[in-house]
């Protein structure tokens, strides 16, 4: 897409705000609509947009494939790990009251951590699927679109 000057400039302008908005949706999800699932997708969209316009090799320099695969598992581990931690602290599995002295604060922390786990897994899964699709040689040439 080297010849699309407007697309390239706009993409460069947009990638930053998209990631910022993803983080807003992620961490403000307790007070406004949103949460890990939505934030993860928006976060992934920033990289996918960059990949579409600048090519897969450029994104893979920023967000390498091995890192995506590790993050894919890390999110689930964070989520399940929170549950197991609360087990060891003497509460039920995934009872976030274990995370702080005040049970209400514990719930806040727990939801924040768990949503972060969800967000990491979702965004890594989306980027991984996109890489998997994009890495195969296309059968339609650029001009045909």
């Amino acid at each position: 897409m080297r010849h699309h000057l407007i697309l390239r400039v706009i993409t460069k302008l947009l990638v930053g705000p998209i990631i910022l908005f993803a983080l807003y949706v992620q961490f403000h999800g307790d007070y406004s609509p949103g949460g890990g699932f939505q934030a993860g997708v928006i976060f992934a969209v920033a990289f996918i947009l960059y990949g579409i316009v600048f090519g897969l090799d450029k994104v893979k320099q920023v967000f390498p494939e091995w890192l995506v695969h590790k993050l894919l598992a890390l999110g689930v581990l964070i989520y399940a790990g929170t549950g197991i931690y609360s087990l060891f602290a003497g509460y039920n599995f995934l009872d976030y009251s274990a995370l702080a002295h005040d049970p209400e604060h514990g719930q806040h922390y727990g939801i924040l951590i768990v949503e972060a786990g969800v967000g990491i897994t979702v965004s890594a899964a989306m980027v991984a699927i996109y890489y998997a699709f994009g890495s195969r040689p296309p059968r339609i040439s650029d001009e045909e679109w």
């Binding site: 307790d30 007070y31 806040h108």
Partner: peptide, 12 residues
């Protein structure tokens, strides 16, 4: 819990 977004409360 005390988080205003009830969807998040129930979901998480």
């Amino acid at each position: 819990i005390g988080i205003p977004n009830m969807v998040t409360d129930i979901l998480a």
